[in-house]
Each structure stands twice: as C-alpha cells, then as structure tokens.
Design a protein around this nucleic acid. Sequence first.
DNA 1: CATCTGACACTAT
DNA 2: TATAGTGCCAGAT
Length: 117
Amino acid sequence: MTMRARILDTIRKIPRGKASTYGAIARAAGYPGAARQVVAALRGSFDLPWQRVLGAGGEIKLRGDSAYEQRLRLEAEGVTFRGRRVDMKNHEFKFAKLKTAAKPKKKRTRKPRTSKV
DNA sequence: CATCTGACACTAT
DNA sequence: TATAGTGCCAGAT
C-alpha cells in the first residue's frame, strides 16, 4: 500500500456533511506531520470528496473560484460555516484510531542537517 | 545527492 | 485577525 493510497482511502472515509483537515487526515492515514502529502494526493487524483478537506481550524485554503466552489459544495451537503471557516464543532469527522502505524521508508537518504552554529 | 515545491501546521508578533 | 518565519515530508527535477 502506497502512502498516497492510504491517504486517498482516508479521505474517502469522510461522510457527507462532515469534513476534516490536512493534518488530521495525514495522522489518520498513519503519517503524522505529512499534511503536505495530503495535498499532493489530492492534486493528482480525482473522484474524491475533496471539498471535505480543509486547513487547520476548518479553514478553506483554496484561492479564487475554487474556494467558492468548495464552500458551495459543502453547504450543499449540509455543512455550516462560522465566518470563513467550517463549523468544525459540528462537522468535524473523527477518524478511528489506527492500529497499524505505517512504517517509515527503509532508506532515509536525506537527513544530515548539520549544525549551523 | 542537492534543491525546489506545495490546496499545510504552528508559533510569535 | 493577519502576516511572517520555521518545521515538515515525500515527490519531482
């Protein structure tokens, strides 16, 4: 199972009328801290409930028309907003805890990060 | 292997 | 509330 597949699966679990965040999805998929990978997965795929993926705090991170469309799609499925962001208090989807954490890659090629002082 | 990149998260100001 | 800087991660070049 590739990382991307797990992330996509996780996204598909979000039910209608609910929403989640990049960070939460990454954690639920077994990759804490990999919020940006969620973005990559979304960009390269389609047929996903992408409108249910938001930034921290339920904030829409898209720009221009896309942001408008995302909001419309969400409202169309019953999601309410508090100002610019989704009312996560009532629509955040909580993922079940993961029993099997995804193992990190074997080869960690890049790492050095030598001290700069 | 070095760099850059991205629909991010978090903290400090 | 808004902006800026830093940390993060894996894929692409």
